[in-house]
Amino acid sequence: MSRTFIDGIIKNNLILVLAIGLCPTLAVTTSAYNGLGMGLAATFVLIFSNLIISAFRNIIPDNLRIPIFIVIIATFVTVVDYTLKAYVPFLSVQLGVFVPLIVVNCGILGRAEGFAYDHSPGYALMDGLGIGLGFTIILFVMGTIREILGQGIWLKIPGMFSGFKVFGEAFTNSSVILMILPPGGFLTIALLMGIFNLFRRK
């Protein structure tokens, strides 16, 4: 079981290995906090959809499984969407349309179909946790890189914490703005993937 968990983080890493779920990865990672929020939201959906699907895998008819998966996933996505809107409104505004779009994150449907549907709930839970964590880590790292280079601060939480000043004032005033603009997202993911490939080949 712990094998499933670790595989979820590294071997089946959604973004770096499978290159799935790229849209939110690039769109919301302008800050570490946003990346973390998005990652956790997706993890929540992943865990619960995995659990439910695996628990009921014997009743779900084979030929109707895809629409049923979609409804289950969409239900949890809506739950997350409204919960964020109610309790962390600012984050919800920042993530915007990408919260409801978790539903089309191929990774989640992929895990439902490829893993949860033929494993017991224990394994499905572990898989959900692992994949979710792997996804969250990448989003957090991307957010961190982009926030630090783009704004000179780290972990700013709007309305609560103004962030660690990583570099001096001079850097903050003339930071690499490109990094928090859309092209910066592409650049960061390209370099992360490149570094990951470098280590994997060895």
């Binding site: 290159a19 092209p183 997202g185 650049l187 993911i189 390209a190 370099l191 993937m193 490149g194 490939n197």
Partner: peptide
Amino acid sequence: LPISFIAAA
């Protein structure tokens, strides 16, 4: 993929 991302950037 990585080089395509750079091109996209």
